[in-house]
Design a protein around this nucleic acid. Structure first.
Lengths: 149, 149
DNA sequence: CGACGCGTGTCAGTTTTCTGACATGCACCA
DNA sequence: TGGTGCATGTCAGAAAACTGACACGCGTCG
């Protein structure tokens, strides 16, 4: 080990740790969402719609970090099952603004509580200051990664 | 907005930001690995094997954060294409220790350089101290998420 | 010794997500 | 007015990951 410049040294790599943390979070969320019959993307979509009603399919896709094609599949299912409504035709352009139904809102309520608990558990043992610093660090990483394409 | 306890407030959620950062990293890695004909999991497998030769399929799966079934599919492809070797039969138990071939090592070398550049870019603008703090913060989150199942 | 639990490698089928492609509608500008 | 660029919604096929299931080898313990 410790070949001079060759390896990435996964045990010390922030990138690797980032993936590890993200995976741990996803697994924890799946764990609490499964009993509710929900996937993470499913939940993300509902949560986004609760915070910004009228978001389009493409906007939701960007917000949930999937392609608009994947989100479209999900939205059609959510619409079919009565969690979400979209107008049959666009009022302007092609954009179809989506809305939560009462059923969607109620379903989200349970899920949101469960996910909030997971996030609280994740942050246990960190001070407000540490959380704020971690927040800024992650923001910086995102900014740097997206900048100099 | 700002319904008291109801929402998760995605713009202030460390969990959401964690997913965002992880996605940005994955996208950036895919961008530089695609010209080399490699996926992220593909690269992860090779990097793991370089650091710890003789890892088994299941160990590689855990290290790359996929199921052992997924890793098995990948390993078979890597073996077929001559990046990796595994003994035909287990010396002890069922564990088949994998090894990089010279071709695998060479292929990894390019990929590793590209990925290292991405990580450097990601950390641009952060001091050593900030990186160290971010590292400890992420470690803490992983630990907390895995602990009180 | 025999039973049990646990980890492993692997096969099969399903689900999810992605890439590619097309038509449509808006905004902009020559 | 017509052209160009860009974003959107959607369809279709392909790639990647997952869940379920089975057989096998090892260790432990009654």
């Amino acid at each position: 080990m410790s070949k001079e410049g060759a390896g990435v040294d996964l045990d010390k790599s922030l990138g690797y740790l980032l993936k590890e943390a993200s995976t741990a979070l996803r697994v924890a969320m799946e764990e609490v969402l499964r009993p509710l019959g929900m996937t993470v993307t499913h939940y993300s979509c509902l949560e986004l719609l609760a915070q910004r009603p009228g978001m389009s399919n493409s906007e939701l896709a960007r917000g949930a970090f999937v392609t608009r094609q994947s989100m479209n599949v999900l939205l059609q299912a959510l619409e079919r099952d009565g969690y979400v409504t979209r107008p049959a035709e666009a009022a302007v352009g092609k954009v179809l603004p989506a809305q939560l139904t009462p059923r969607g809102r109620q379903s989200l309520e349970e899920a949101s509580a469960a996910v909030r608990a997971v996030e609280v558990r994740m942050l246990a043992g960190m001070t407000e200051n540490e959380q704020e610093r971690a927040f800024r660090a992650l923001r910086s990483m995102v900014h740097s990664l997206r900048g100099p394409a």
